[in-house]
């Protein structure tokens, strides 16, 4: 465990040193603040809490941004060190390979977690300071959104690290990471939509669609935040979907967690067997 924590600490230190932490935090804070204050205008008319509006807009933003940040950070984790020549020296130390993988994962999740909490937290804080009405339910939805955002980041960090252990050059890792982002964040939904339209409700059952949604961490996150929480559901225009989908919030969270754990275990297994 000590080795894992040392590794994680080193990753965070490097993240602070090469400005990853600062850049990600500032980016998320700037976008969150913009959305919070742009979103505050319609809030009065709809009569919903300001924070619920922020949850809807921020989770829509997070779906695109957090996976991208996570993959950019993590695709380099192993292959980058291998190419720079620092990996072999690290592995000659009394440190098991799984400790390297898990430590890097924790470090990167720490960086993304800090950026999300600070960036989005700044928006919530600004809203409260500006005197917007914030309900307890609003805070709850916001808290769930923060937590699931970190989990979404963790899922994509794990995927990025898996890519990083599988390839032997950084360019390939970057290419696969971008491809993965396109596939899971953009193309998956389009393909699913296309499929549903083409099928016209003939063969695809609701359960199949549910399963296809669970097979994508970005969709699990979207459903959890937009359709999972009652007050938010009304705002996000997902009321119908949320009502019909058989996916409970707990199941969606479990799917997200599985998306973090399974690729991480696979990465550990591959890396332990790999010849260097």
């Amino acid at each position: 465990m000590k080795g894992v924590l040392l590794m994680a600490g080193k990753e965070i230190r490097e993240g602070i040193r090469n400005r990853w932490v600062v850049a990600a935090t500032l980016l998320l804070a700037a976008l969150a603040l913009t959305l919070a204050f742009l979103g505050a205008a319609p809030a009065g008319r709809v009569g919903a809490g300001a924070l619920e509006v922020v949850v809807v807009s921020l989770s829509s933003l997070s779906i695109f941004l957090l996976p991208l940040i996570a993959l950019l950070l993590s695709h380099d984790a192993i292959v980058g060190e291998a190419e720079r020549g620092t990996l072999l020296l690290l592995l000659s130390y009394p440190l098991a390979r799984w400790q390297v993988v898990i430590g890097k994962f924790l470090g990167h999740v720490g960086i993304i977690g800090a950026a999300t909490l600070l960036g989005y937290g700044a928006a919530a804080l600004a809203l409260t300071l500006a005197g917007q009405p914030v309900t307890a339910a609003g805070w709850q939805a916001f808290g769930w959104m923060l937590g699931s955002s970190v989990l979404l980041g963790a899922a994509f960090v794990a995927l990025g690290i898996l890519v990083s252990t599988l390839v032997r050059d950084r360019g390939a890792a970057a290419g696969i990471a971008v491809g993965l982002w396109l596939l899971l964040v953009l193309l998956w939904d389009m393909a699913l939509l296309g499929l549903l339209v083409a099928d016209a409700g003939q063969t695809l059952t609701a359960n199949t669609v549910d399963a296809l949604l669970l097979l994508n961490p970005a969709d699990a996150y979207r459903l959890f935040n937009l359709a999972g929480l009652a007050d938010v559901r009304l705002l996000s225009g997902m009321a119908a979907l949320g009502g019909e989908s058989g996916l409970a919030p707990a199941l969606l969270l479990a799917s997200l967690a599985a998306w973090a754990v399974v690729p991480l275990l696979a990465a550990t297994a591959f890396f332990t067997r790999r010849e260097l």
Binding site: E14, N18, R84, G85, T86
Partner: peptide, 8 residues
């Protein structure tokens, strides 16, 4: 030809 992270 040992290398280290140049940022540290």
């Amino acid at each position: 030809s040992v290398t280290f992270n140049p940022a540290l």
